[in-house]
Design a protein around this nucleic acid. Structure first.
Length: 170
DNA sequence: ACGATGATGAAC
DNA sequence: TTCATCATCGTA
């Protein structure tokens, strides 16, 4: 996926990532998974975003280049995979919550072996984890929008429909 | 419904 | 340095 793709607003990208493929190469083996669930964290004013309380050591990559991975650790056991979006200096990202075969952000990183070692790396073949458009069209009727999961502390921002789910008939 | 499990950020 | 919290998940 080219750099321009990620230089847009997080919620547009969150929607556009549905149907794209998360591709992983480890020890010469390449695997690809269709992205089916995402969430947008749209900016410093977003009360659910880590960036809402300013720049810290943990969230600094959100303030950096678009198209880089932001991986952090929560609940003492799960790594969360995000991709940084928007112009440099503007903290926003998309959380990749689910792919075909691994629904749920914690399950996804566990299945693909994604850890904080990827934090701050570019989404590219060089880093071993990247995103491809494999040309499959997504019917907009199959995209659902819901409030984000697990952010009740965000008050009014908890209700905004910034979660995107691809629900294709099988 | 609840506990696991540890990094993080803010308070003291 | 301590403490509450946390973009979750498996088991019950």
């Amino acid at each position: 996926m080219n750099q321009n793709f990620f230089q847009r607003s997080a919620q547009i990208i969150a929607r556009d990532l549905l149907g794209k493929y998360l591709v992983c190469r480890v020890r010469g083996k390449t695997t690809a998974y269709k992205i089916v669930e995402t969430e947008a964290y749209v900016g410093p004013h977003d009360k659910a975003s880590h960036a809402h309380r300013g720049k810290t050591k943990r969230n600094e990559v959100m303030f950096g280049e678009a198209g880089h991975w932001y991986v952090y650790f929560v609940y003492g056991m799960h790594n969360m995979l995000n991709i940084v979006t928007g112009p440099k200096g503007y903290p926003a990202a998309v959380l990749i919550r689910g792919v075909e075969g691994a629904i749920g952000p914690g399950r996804l990183t566990k299945k693909l072996g994604i850890t904080r070692a990827l934090n701050g790396k570019a989404a590219s073949k060089k880093s071993g984890l990247w995103i491809e458009d494999r040309g499959k069209k997504v019917n907009p009727r199959h995209i659902k929008r819901t409030p984000r999961i697990g952010v009740p502390y965000a008050k009014d921002w908890a209700k905004k429909p910034l979660r995107f789910v691809l629900a294709e008939p099988s």
